[in-house]
Nucleic acid binder design. Structure first.
Lengths: 242, 242
DNA sequence: TTGACTTATATGTCTAGACATATAATCGTA
DNA sequence: TACGATTATATGTCTAGACATATAAGTCAA
């Protein structure tokens, strides 16, 4: 039998404190600029030690919900519209999540010495070798996106002998490269002849372009350009999702 | 005089521990799946208490760099390309950051009862009133983006009497609404006659579209649609930026 | 009024313990 | 061999202290 008020002893104390404060901020009860109770006040309110409330507040500060200032206290921060978590899912995951059948097709693969354009695109200076891959992802046999990728072989030598006819280079890399950082650039273009044909859309139709440049501790790994039919595809980014 | 190895006693111990581990992960020295030393081993290595290494590891877990499993240990996670922090800056900040002069111009403002299309766009069911705003942001007097916005007056009644002829609705809202969540959708279109004229580009030129839907604890606040010339504007998202 | 100095205080970090809990590994039994 | 019970252990949370440090606020002199 549980107590009358339903003890709900599931979450730990520091998480409850964090959730309590987060709720007051998100509902507007504690607006931006509001000084939330001092640690010693929360200690008294929750009847716990300072380290416990400190952990709750530290996590809120890490999430940019509050700002902590020595001697002054902790303050609710202004919402920051400008920052959003953009999910760029793995192509297969993205398509299967839509309940559609994922399809992959290798269009071209070439191993070559870097051209000046390749070096420009990869952001490297020295000459070297790359694998250039063109492939297409489809959903229910309808073109979903075309991919145009360069892999720097000086960083990922194994890619020279990898078989990309069945496995998309993106997932291959995900399993063969230990850790990476990436930069994304998003823009819009209209389809030229080749793009239109590859995506099975009209010439002049809008396309969304995502360019991703990936590296690991200052070493370039890959540069990829993804072209989506612009009117069908949508990227959804949710801010401050709990 | 500092010691030979350069003591560098600036950062606190837990931050040093966190940075040490992060570095090994990022350089690939500890690849995905690698079991990082147990807490008690790190305690021995750094000569500190368990709470200190626990704080370092907890933050790495929060940042999704490692995964912690009871009784098993802590493991380096696989890199997660699919998540990137997309910065959608405030328009003025974005333009001034480029070293250009920001300009704002109100094109139209209308207070009206919601149409079915408005309700669809705002995701509300009940009838009500909205302010519909169209405006233009420019950089060095060149059109930079056009904005088309609805504000739900049942959530933000003050917006009815706000003066949007000088202040963009985005910054007005930022100062009048306590805290919000948002969802962004990005797509591409080609400019129709009106868009082409507003952005001073050719009909049929590509445009990048960002739609943002904002709410506060389940209450709709605003829906905004931003149109950028697609070949000039770029959104940059950086993943796992230190 | 202004600037320099002092003080009070809230947060930042850390310790040396404690018990809770999930679970990998082992052991025992059918 | 397969499965259920037991045990060992790494992490999860928490405490009651401690000292460090940045800084808001007050004090005092020029």
């Amino acid at each position: 039998m549980s107590l009358a008020t339903d003890a709900a002893d599931k979450p730990t104390l520091y998480k409850r404190i964090r959730a309590d404060i987060e709720k007051r901020i998100l509902t507007g009860e504690w607006p931006p600029g509001y000084r939330i109770p001092f640690e010693h006040e929360l200690v008294a309110r929750y009847g716990c030690s300072r380290m416990t409330v400190n952990k709750a507040l530290s996590e809120l500060a890490q999430a940019d919900l509050i700002e902590r200032r020595r001697r002054a206290g902790s303050f609710v921060r202004r919402p920051q519209h400008q920052s959003a978590v953009l999910k760029i899912a793995d192509m297969r995951a993205e398509i299967t999540a839509l309940g559609r059948t994922y399809g992959y097709e290798l269009i071209g693969r070439k191993l070559r010495a870097t051209t000046a354009a390749d070096r420009e695109r990869l952001g490297v200076k020295k000459a070297g070798k790359v694998v250039a891959i063109t492939c297409r992802h489809s959903a229910d046999n309808v073109p979903f996106a075309v991919e145009d990728r360069l892999i720097d072989l000086s960083s990922v030598p194994d890619a020279a002998s990898a078989d990309f006819s069945r496995e998309p280079p993106g997932s291959w890399l995900l399993h063969h490269v230990p850790w990476t950082e990436a930069e994304h650039t998003i823009s819009a273009i209209v389809a030229d002849d080749r793009t239109a044909e590859a995506l099975d859309i009209a010439v002049g139709a809008p396309c969304l372009v995502i360019e991703r440049y990936t590296w690991r501790s200052a070493r370039t790994i890959t540069a990829v350009r993804l072209l989506y039919p612009g009117d069908s595809h949508r990227l959804v980014a949710r801010f401050k999702g709990g």
